[in-house]
Amino acid sequence: MKQMITHILCATDLSKHSAYTMCHAANLAAVTGAKLHLVHAVQPMSDETRIALQLYMQTTGSSETADKARHAHLKTVMAERQREFWAHVSEEDRDIQNQVASIELVDGHPAEVILRRATELECDLIVLGAHEHGFSHTFLGTVAKRVLRRSTIPTLVVPYRDTAPSA
């Protein structure tokens, strides 16, 4: 019996490389007819950062204000990355954009967010990118390793690529 892919979760770190990962996820969505869910995990501010904000800004709501500003900035970056990506997709392939079911910024540690949202959205496949590292590191980032270890569904890790995709 064939397993159908109906929902794909594409995790993005909002880097320039994320367009290459998105290209693979969009191509898979086009081939399978699956809905595409894009998610970016917003890492929580460390306690040290919160304390520093309170010390230097001397206001009680400084960390909340910083969180809101951070979210607003990330929404802008995510929208920009989407515009850049779809602008490079050929006219004949732009219908894939209709398969994008959700674009989310979710608070939490990246691996946890990816795995939780994949379960909540009933995804059949996770697509995420590897990171560039020096010779002393493996090609996989910590997030990819954690997701691969704990995922109960197929997970595609797109290798790091220095050049932009030709969609």
Rank of each mutant, 00 (worst) to 15 (best):
T6Y: 01
E64V: 05
G129M: 04
A30Y: 03
F85W: 10
Q3V: 08
T59N: 08
R150Y: 01
G33L: 06
H37C: 03
T76S: 11
H131E: 06
S15V: 06
A72R: 06
M4E: 09
T32V: 06
E122L: 08
R50G: 05
F135V: 14
A19N: 14
V100Q: 09
R117H: 11
R161I: 09
D47W: 12
E92Y: 04
A41V: 08
V127H: 02
M4A: 07
P159G: 11
T138E: 07
D67E: 14
M1V: 09
K16P: 09
H137R: 15
V89N: 04
D162G: 13
T142E: 14
E92F: 04
H24A: 15
R149A: 13
H24E: 15
E104K: 14
T6F: 01
T65C: 03
D93H: 12
E112A: 02
D93S: 10
A164S: 10
Q54M: 13
I114V: 13
A25P: 14
H133P: 03
E48G: 13
H71D: 06
T163W: 11
L148F: 08
A25Y: 02
D93Y: 08
V127I: 05
S62N: 03
A164C: 03
Q54H: 15
I126W: 00
G141C: 12
T152E: 09
I8K: 03
T163R: 14
E64C: 04
A25T: 15
R83F: 03
L148D: 06
G33W: 03
K2G: 04
M1K: 07
L105V: 12
D95T: 03
L36I: 08
T76C: 05
L36N: 02
N98C: 00
T59C: 07
E132M: 04
E122P: 01
V143A: 02
E92V: 08
G134R: 11
L140A: 12
A167D: 05
A69I: 04
S151W: 00
M22P: 05
E92S: 12
I103T: 15
P44N: 15
I96D: 02
T152M: 05
R149P: 00
A87E: 14
T12Y: 03
N98I: 01
